[in-house]
Design a protein around this nucleic acid. Structure first.
Lengths: 213, 213
DNA sequence: GCCGCTATTGTGGATGACCGCAAGCCTGCC
DNA sequence: GGCAGGCTTGCGGTCATCCACAATAGCGGC
């Protein structure tokens, strides 16, 4: 549980000279970083909890940077990725960005510009972190619910009265009350309003209440 | 109120030959389109309600495509913009995409590819439309609320009891009830739960209820 | 068989939400 | 001055929610 989740800038490049240069650059600017000699090495070590950003060459021996980013996204990573390339073209850059890359920089690059970009990538990751952690938290709470409780919760969020819920589930009102109380307890809220806010905010329950009239 | 809101693909280019070619291409593919000889002309005619997408040359006489997109965004347009360029470079493409462009295509382009991109841009606009219209709708309803009603609504969304709200506002419970009813009525909901969902979904009220424990 | 978890139900009471009816006060506008 | 709109309040009643106390029952695991 003592996982190191401090933001880290990951340098992924198969060229040792570049790795060293970037590493030196970031360290002198007080940006904590780590280096990886290949996409494969990084992918293997990568953990979902990692924060920070990735500075990766797009063309490498073995797995390409683009494929690496695809693999990361599939595994749920949201780390901002900054691609670096020596022989990039417009379609490649467009493709990378449309797939969610944070930036795409050509070599040779300006040291200050790169550090600035990394900084804003770190900022973005920090911002994402807040949202993500509430979502994870809410999802964990949802996991604790029993089937019946989830069922009742759905009907509560549909704005139905306990009486109606009881009818629909063919159980007594009292039972609904019990489930309702458990749902509130497990979800850590004290009212249906808070419950609705929490789930809607986390994007885990889009009831999309139709507007009247 | 009979504004024409049918999706339209706007071609903005100062080269008449290109306009004609694109116009012909889209028409033969059953993609309704309109042409504009300059960014200025388009900007002047543009209406917030317009739907569809924009295919625009990035380099034109007078205002550039990039500046035009900036102007459009400032005025609230969310129309997807596809840039076309004959002399683009990577930084230009990256800049355009990071500012929200939908795509960035180099000349010469493949007809089929362009039509595909336009199609997906139109799809995206249609998707956005749903979200936007509910947000606009909710915003309009919020406008109708009186100051006091907004105040009460805030406390309702904070999950407080009428009694507490009455205390905090130094008014009677009955008054709170009246405001509460008016809020529900004007917002077109029938319960606090629906209210919370509607506002949270529209992103117009982020109460960010803190998780317990 | 006992334990833990889940689902179920009842009674009765306290508290809160919602509503119709009625009405007083103040402000800005014609 | 009258009128509209907003803010205020009281009364009395209905309906819904929440909760403590109490209890039954099925299911899977030790």
């Amino acid at each position: 549980m003592t996982t190191d989740t401090a933001p880290l800038t990951h340098i992924v490049d198969d060229d040792e000279a570049i790795r060293d240069a970037l590493s030196w650059l970031f360290r002198t600017r007080n940006v904590p970083c780590a280096t990886w000699p290949s996409a494969e090495a990084f992918l293997e070590a990568w953990q979902l909890e990692w924060r920070g950003c990735i500075v990766m060459d797009i063309r490498m021996q073995g797995m390409s940077g683009l494929d690496c980013s695809t693999a990361l996204r599939q595994r749920g990573s949201t780390l901002p990725i900054i691609f670096i390339t020596g022989h990039g073209d417009v379609p490649m850059a467009v493709g990378a960005l449309k797939r969610g890359a944070f930036d795409f920089i050509e070599k040779p690059f300006d040291d200050n510009a790169l550090v600035d970009v990394v900084q804003s990538a770190l900022d973005e990751d920090a911002r994402n972190q807040a949202r993500r952690s509430t979502r994870v938290d809410v999802a964990a709470r949802l996991e604790q619910l029993t089937g019946r409780e989830r069922e009742v919760m759905g009907l509560i969020l549909a704005g139905k009265f306990n009486k109606v819920i009881a009818d629909e589930l063919n159980i007594s009102m009292r039972t609904v009350e019990v489930h309702r109380a458990r749902v509130f307890e497990k979800m850590g809220v004290r009212s249906a309003v808070e419950l609705a806010q929490q789930l809607t905010l986390a994007g885990l329950y889009n009831n999309a209440a139709p507007l009247a009239e």
